[in-house]
Design a protein around this nucleic acid. Structure first.
Lengths: 252, 252
DNA sequence: GCTTGACTCTCACGCGACGTCAGGCTGTTC
DNA sequence: GAACAGCCTGACGTCGCGTGAGAGTCAAGC
């Protein structure tokens, strides 16, 4: 029915000090005290603590949390709706970061360097067009970037050569399939796509079919990746992209 | 080619003070200075800042970030892999929180109260079995909870009645369909399921079919939701659940 | 009834990651 | 050459606790 500080702390996964602090600043005042002065938290307090922790986890300051929770015009349902919205937004942001990291991995594998504005724009409160353009000019010189990247990449030389070797081999077989007129969504091309997926999984990270499909779409949407493939053989970008997506549909 | 503090700050979406701080603690030292003492950041520095911000965003302390980035045994590829892993873990956690909020919404709509350990266990570093059991005992008395919830729910009385009214109506029609022997994955049941989804969307949050399917599965997996439906009519829980999932497949 | 040990209380100082002036130099532009 | 935006280095303030210190409380066992 009611809890001491220590109990509530264990229950909620915070420290006793944290609860003391919340009491001190009036964010979460225990609804009672024992005769000895011990804090007593009841059901409502536990409820409130849960809300506090959720909002805190969403990067609100404790002061903001207090004003959110103490607003008499906002009911519990409204809080749930808001939390749902905020959490979904956070999911989106994190997803963008994941996509950015994956893009970077792919780029490295191909020896392409991404521009800095591309790598920063994913960090939330990003720059209006204006700055993006400014940055574009400043950093357009990709050679400097490529150099800096190469220096920074401490991947062992042998590893690097292995990757290049595998990649070249797979690309050559894609080219052959394209030249032979094998359909991009046919078995032969899809098997190559699957091999590509396996390569990523073994080299980098577990890449399930749907994630792979995202990469596939990027090959035709991002000019740098498109030109990478098309320089190997005209039409290869679309070919690989289609094969990857088709393979994902088969596996999904 | 190179940047002043202000430029880099705008580019990365941080303040000048932050860059000063990182310089001071040796986390990001600009690779040069002008004759007047102005900081000059070059490509490598920008690169490093990006890494710093990513790790910082994953809640590492600056000291930890420094030791991560300065570890000579870890190459850039390894960093990308690690970042990918950490980000995916964060996605999972956030997803669990979203599910918890949705569960809470559903529970409120039905007048069920969730137990506190259910609501806390989603907060990461959670309690071993032992505590869960302790909490189960302490809070098993759901009546007290229901009361506290009712008090806390400041949803206007009219709103609440409206919701109950709509819900009751829909449930009655589900019961009728079940009694008439309409198949759970047939058109009639699926239309009702779709109506249920629309109700959530208008009352709470945008609930696309796949999200709805998650809720549907919960109706048979979580005993409290099961018994809620089965008390209305035996077999209703499975019936609604099947209809919801079937409807999601039709719409997806 | 007394001890032991886990738990609680209230100060109160410390710390990490910056925010926020203050006072002064730099660099471009009109 | 004057104005103004941008840079510099201190240095103190803030937020959200961590970490003792010193003292009282409480259930269990002797």
């Amino acid at each position: 029915m009611s809890h001491t500080v220590g109990e509530l702390a264990r229950l909620a996964g915070v420290t006793v000090r944290t609860l003391h602090h919340y009491d001190q600043i009036g964010l979460l005042t225990p609804s009672g005290r024992t005769s000895a002065g011990y804090r007593v938290y009841d059901v409502c307090d536990v409820d409130r603590l849960q809300q506090v922790l959720l909002y805190r986890g969403l990067a609100f300051s404790l002061e903001e949390v207090a004003s959110l929770l103490d607003d008499p015009d906002v009911d519990a349902a409204e809080h749930l709706r808001r939390q749902h919205r905020l959490l979904t937004e956070q999911l989106d942001r994190t997803h963008q970061l994941v996509a950015a990291v994956e893009k970077e991995m792919e780029a490295r594998q191909m020896g392409i360097s991404l521009t800095p504005q591309e790598r920063f724009e994913v960090f939330g409160d990003w720059l209006p067009e204006q700055y993006a353009e400014e940055a574009e000019q400043r950093w357009g010189d990709t050679d400097a970037w490529a150099q800096s990247q190469r220096r920074q990449t401490a991947m062992s030389k042998q590893d690097w050569l292995d990757v290049r070797c595998e990649t070249d081999d797979l690309e050559a077989r894609f080219v052959a399939a394209l030249a032979d007129g094998a359909p991009a969504d046919g078995d032969r091309a899809r098997d190559l796509a699957e091999e590509h997926r396996q390569q990523i999984t073994s080299r980098w990270y577990d890449c399930p079919p749907e994630m792979h499909a995202c990469l596939g779409r990027m090959y035709v949407e991002d000019e740098r990746f498109t030109s990478y493939y098309d320089r190997i053989a005209p039409g290869l970008a679309l070919y690989v992209s289609t094969a990857v997506v088709a393979n994902a549909e088969r596996r999904g």
